[in-house]
Simulated assay, not measured.
Amino acid sequence: MSERRFTIDHAADAAYFPIATSIGEGESVENLIVERPQGTLVLDFDGGGRLLGVEVLGAKALLTAETIRDAEVLA
């Protein structure tokens, strides 16, 4: 099983967990937004309804410190 990389942008307090191996420009055509008291999850889907990735807005509140530490930091 290959390890999937996920990213975090500390300035934006946002993380992204890709599900698909690669996501092409314009491939995400539908977003399902899940509001939580601590932040928001955005699920990205392609035209066939397949889940491409999950964006976490409010990452500091929604993710564990360990998860944040393991993320690839975006500059």
Rank of each mutant, 00 (worst) to 15 (best):
M1E: 11
S2Y: 10
E3K: 12
E3T: 11
E3H: 08
R4K: 15
R4H: 12
R5F: 08
R5K: 15
R5I: 12
R5L: 13
T7R: 07
T7G: 02
T7Y: 15
T7V: 15
I8D: 01
I8K: 03
I8C: 03
I8Y: 14
D9K: 10
D9M: 08
A11T: 11
A12C: 04
A12H: 05
A14W: 02
A15D: 02
Y16S: 03
Y16G: 03
F17K: 10
P18W: 04
P18R: 06
I19F: 12
I19K: 13
A20Y: 13
A20N: 12
T21M: 12
T21R: 15
T21C: 05
S22H: 14
E25S: 09
G26C: 06
G26K: 14
S28G: 15
E30A: 14
E30K: 14
V34E: 11
E35K: 13
E35D: 14
R36Y: 03
P37C: 01
P37V: 01
P37W: 01
G39D: 00
G39T: 01
G39E: 00
V42M: 07
L43H: 09
D44G: 06
D44P: 00
F45A: 05
F45E: 05
D46W: 09
G47M: 09
G48N: 15
G48R: 12
G49C: 10
G49A: 10
R50W: 04
R50K: 14
R50F: 07
L51M: 13
L51F: 12
G53D: 04
G53H: 08
G53W: 11
G53Y: 10
G53R: 10
V54C: 13
E55I: 03
E55P: 05
V56P: 03
V56Q: 05
L57F: 08
L57M: 09
K60W: 01
K60D: 03
K60V: 04
A61C: 02
L62G: 07
A65M: 11
T67G: 02
R69F: 05
D70T: 05
D70K: 08
A71S: 13
A71L: 06
A71C: 06
E72K: 11
V73E: 10
L74Y: 03
A75T: 09
